[in-house]
Design a protein around this nucleic acid. Structure first.
Length: 410
RNA sequence: GUGGGUGUAGCUCAGUCGGUUAGAGCGCCUGGUUGUGGCCCAGGAGGUCGUGGGUUCAAGUCCCAUCUCUCACCCCA
């Protein structure tokens, strides 16, 4: 039997209402904050991601679905959306048409990792990007937006973590400080962390190695060595979150894996899913656009994992229940009336949802099916009523029925 | 890429110290009088026990391999 590729999933009809519900809530929230939807291709030239996300990141280094097409161009299925959105912005000069572009998306992404709870190779994200302003109000808005969406979906068991990475100049100073602190402890670090000491020293804070954590516990923190401008930016973000009533905690060790972040980074972390607990992550990226084009456009954004959110909703038992319903089921008493049923059904279908039996089942079986489908009303065609030009209309909720002229349905 | 667990009906699972026709619940189908659902009752369909080897008189059960799914590491949404 041919099966879906490892790490991919079919979303079956009975799950679709949950997806539609989530997408509706996302779209409505985005609309409320005046974000406009954007859709970009599923694949891009590989160098968009290698340049945009960063060669040293895990995503680019070992997780991308990359292949050569027939003209030998290196193609990659998008592992995240920010680089694509920025590409589209520059390609169509949206940044010149509007000073500020507030965009959102809902789209599948692809990463070749080992699947586990809350992690898939094809997964869906919704997210938002605001391009064109350095205002901390937008950093706060992103966090508020993500927070509100999760709340509207019914989730409560999650926390908002924020941090600031400052600007590159203050970060460089800090990195040197950190290197100095670690210089005599290098041999005590795990192998992985020793590598990161060279490639991306900030990520040492992420290490789950006990000994590493012990060492890092006393390390100087970036947030204590920010320049004044970065501090002020961060302070304003926090003030606005407070005034918006968004509870948050500052996590100085929150260092995100993508190269392009500056200033604010944040995560919304659930306590209701497995170890893949980040429902949503994002931050400010004032340098990315320049890296991909010649123009200098600041930006801030977030991405949220739909599968993880649905999983959290299930575990928190806040998934709304959707009971299937149709307006009419048409029961045919004599099988010679099949053509009549077909005609009436299609008339009703101009306005209502209608179903009928396509096989030759008994009246009892048809009624059972009507009940199974959640039909509000059953139209019975045939017998003496039909000869008098009437049909029986049965109300399935209370079992009452009445005769109505068949003309009403023709 | 590394490690642990798992695989029996459409679904959730039981199956004893290896022993004869492999079970349950749910779901599905049919029926419980001539043309009526939900509840109840009766009956029915549906399984090469993941796959391939091996041990044995005998394997769903033991051993090996392989695949699958799954959880965790890693990383992230």
């Amino acid at each position: 039997m041919i099966k879906a590729i490892t790490g991919t999933k079919d979303i079956l009809p009975n799950e679709i209402p949950n997806w539609n519900n989530l997408e509706d809530i996302v779209c409505n929230a985005m609309k409320a904050f005046n974000y406009k939807e954007i859709r970009t291709p599923i694949f891009e030239e590989t160098r968009l991601f290698s340049r945009g996300i960063g060669e040293a990141t895990d995503i680019v280094g070992k997780e991308m679905y990359t292949f050569l097409d027939r003209s030998e161009t290196s193609i990659t299925l998008k592992p995240e959306m920010t680089a694509s959105v920025v590409r589209a912005l520059l390609e169509h000069s949206l940044d010149k048409q509007n000073q500020l572009n507030k965009l959102f998306y809902i789209s599948p992404m692809f990463r070749q990792e080992r699947p586990q709870a809350g992690r898939f190779r094809q997964f869906n994200q919704f997210g938002a990007e605001a391009l064109g302003s350095i205002s901390p109000a937008l950093d706060a808005e992103m966090i508020l937006l993500a927070y509100q969406i999760l709340k509207r979906l019914g989730l409560s068991n999650f926390v908002v973590k924020i941090n600031s990475l400052g600007v590159p100049s203050s970060r460089e100073n800090y990195k040197n400080l950190l290197k100095e602190y670690l210089s005599d402890k290098l041999n005590d670090l795990s192998e992985e962390s020793q590598k990161r000491y060279e490639t991306n020293i900030l990520r040492l804070f992420d290490s789950k190695d006990r000994d590493d954590q012990k060492i890092m516990e006393h390390a100087p923190l970036l947030i204590e060595h920010l320049d004044d401008e970065s501090l002020e930016h961060f302070e304003e973000v926090k003030q606005m979150l407070l005034s918006a009533g968004v509870p948050f905690e500052v996590d100085p060790k929150l260092v995100r894996g993508l190269d392009y972040y500056t200033h604010t980074t944040f995560e919304l972390v659930s306590g209701s899913v497995g170890s893949q607990s980040a429902l949503c992550g994002g931050g400010r990226y004032d340098l990315l656009v320049k890296q991909l084009g010649e123009r200098d456009v600041p930006g801030v954004g977030f991405a949220a994992g739909i599968e993880r959110i649905l999983l959290a909703m299930e575990n928190e038992k806040v998934m709304p229940e959707f009971i299937p319903q149709i307006d009419y089921y048409i029961v045919r008493l004599e099988k010679e009336l099949s053509k009549k049923v077909f005609e009436i059904a299609n008339n009703l279908r101009k306005e209502k949802s209608v179903e009928f039996d396509y096989t030759q089942r008994s009246v009892k079986a048809q009624m059972r099916e009507a009940n199974r489908l959640g039909a509000k009303k059953v139209l019975m065609i045939g017998g003496s009523e039909y000869e008098r030009g009437m049909v029986v209309l049965k109300n399935m909720s209370d079992g009452s029925q009445e005769e109505i002229a068949i003309k009403e349905f023709e």
